[in-house]
Simulated scan of single mutants.
Amino acid sequence: MRRPTKGTWRRVAVVSLTVVCVSYAPVAMTELWPYARPGAPAFGEWLLGRMVSPSYVADALATRIAPYRHSLIPMIVHSVLGGVLMLLGPAQLFTASRRRTRLHRILGVLFAVTVYASMASAALYLARTAPEDAFSGAAFWIVLATILLGTVLSVTFGVLAAIGGYPDLHQRWMLLCYGYLLTAPLLRLEWGALPRLLPGLPMTAINLVAIQHLGSLVVFGALIASRTLDRRSRIDGVTGSWAPLPVLVAAHLAGAAGLFWIARSYLDFGATGHRLLVAYLLPYAVAYAVMAAGARRAGREGRGWAREEWRLHLTALCLAPVLSVGAVPVLERGLDLDPHTALTAGVAIGCGMLAFAANVVVSMRVMHAREVLKRTVSADRTTAVGVSAPVA
């Protein structure tokens, strides 16, 4: 039997992503219609009610009427534009892969404008909603605010990279931006799937389980996509490593200490803490194994740039628990949260924020390499002129 090739897996991934995005678009666009007009069709509620149970959906959404009503127009704008973004994402992948440069730029401008408008509407909702009134409470409000900020900054850096003539960095930032956007459909999928693994839990509890790993999953997917599309073995001007062995060792030690603290803290919260800890650790372990294997394989094959990018992201992943541990007292005291809520929120945002930081470092690495190359070329030209100049 013939084994699937990398090209086959790539096509499967693109088709799967397209199916998820196109299927979710009408769900997103109609999600809030019933709040504006009772009885209006909402495909997401209808599907979820049949996947789990009508009471599972009704009990969760009954508490949303008051918080959504005072920000209904911004929320509807956000959800409708979110559905549009689900359609624009696969279209951008298609135009980029087919070298449709003009169409890709036009759709790219539309995509960026839509992201800004959608996130502005979401920001208005968050500003009008107290953290404790958000769905699943303050932890989810903090996660939403973090994703919003990451999405806006990612698309901004992507636009600036395109203007500055860095197509590789543009690609990375836009993939990260779309990864943040994909938290919405993936969360809905987990609303339907996790009740089979965790029967009896309400959607609010399922929501807290999902946010423990959604951030790490989407940024990990963006990294895999970036590494798949970037086939360069080396980049001129990139020498050495910004994540040498001593840095990696220190990051691993700090990360292990952070994971130990997180595990011990979650275990103090009984069955709920055990559930959230497993939801965090399993995806984290998978991401770590893939990054470590990717860096090792790239090193053996002599692909220096791939090894460097894997190692930078691996370092960030190791430091994510450290950021989470540091965020817990800040959230607890700054927002007057109870220890359990602060822990849940701090753990939920760690991997997503450090992946963003890793993208920043990768971008600085590429830009530094270009500057080194420019200086080398300039120095060579100066030397050539000095050698060819006639002696007086």
Rank of each mutant, 00 (worst) to 15 (best):
residue 182 L to H: 02
residue 347 V to A: 11
residue 55 S to M: 04
residue 59 D to E: 14
residue 256 A to G: 12
residue 173 W to L: 05
residue 239 T to Y: 07
residue 101 T to G: 09
residue 275 R to Q: 10
residue 174 M to V: 04
residue 99 R to G: 06
residue 276 L to C: 06
residue 205 A to K: 01
residue 198 L to S: 05
residue 244 P to V: 11
residue 82 G to K: 00
residue 8 T to P: 00
residue 369 A to F: 01
residue 386 G to W: 14
residue 342 A to C: 05
residue 45 E to K: 10
residue 199 P to W: 02
residue 4 P to F: 13
residue 380 D to I: 15
residue 310 W to V: 03
residue 282 L to P: 09
residue 166 Y to R: 06
residue 126 L to N: 04
residue 72 L to D: 01
residue 173 W to D: 00
residue 87 L to C: 14
residue 291 M to L: 15
residue 217 L to S: 12
residue 33 W to N: 14
residue 331 L to V: 04
residue 392 A to V: 15
residue 92 Q to I: 12
residue 139 A to W: 06
residue 334 G to L: 04
residue 154 S to Y: 05
residue 355 A to E: 03
residue 225 A to I: 02
residue 251 A to M: 01
residue 117 A to V: 15
residue 287 A to R: 00
residue 104 H to D: 13
residue 97 S to H: 04
residue 86 M to D: 09
residue 311 R to D: 13
residue 339 P to T: 00
residue 350 G to P: 07
residue 223 L to F: 15
residue 373 L to N: 03
residue 5 T to M: 12
residue 225 A to R: 02
residue 232 R to F: 03
residue 229 L to V: 01
residue 134 A to H: 13
residue 302 G to E: 12
residue 370 R to W: 04
residue 286 V to F: 10
residue 237 G to D: 02
residue 314 L to I: 06
residue 348 A to G: 07
residue 216 S to D: 07
residue 324 S to G: 14
residue 119 M to P: 02
residue 194 L to H: 12
residue 315 T to I: 07
residue 38 P to T: 10
residue 222 A to K: 01
residue 335 L to K: 05
residue 227 R to L: 05
residue 77 V to Y: 05
residue 324 S to W: 10
residue 312 L to T: 06
residue 265 S to N: 08
residue 230 D to C: 07
residue 186 L to R: 01
residue 152 V to T: 12
residue 87 L to H: 05
residue 375 R to K: 13
residue 282 L to S: 14
residue 88 L to N: 01
residue 327 A to V: 07
residue 40 A to N: 08
residue 154 S to A: 15
residue 294 G to E: 06
residue 97 S to P: 01
residue 67 P to S: 06
residue 43 F to A: 15
residue 280 Y to G: 03
residue 120 A to H: 08
residue 132 E to K: 09
residue 74 P to A: 00
residue 90 P to N: 02
residue 354 L to F: 04
residue 334 G to C: 08
residue 114 T to G: 12
residue 339 P to Q: 06
residue 72 L to K: 01
residue 266 Y to S: 11
residue 4 P to W: 12
residue 225 A to N: 03
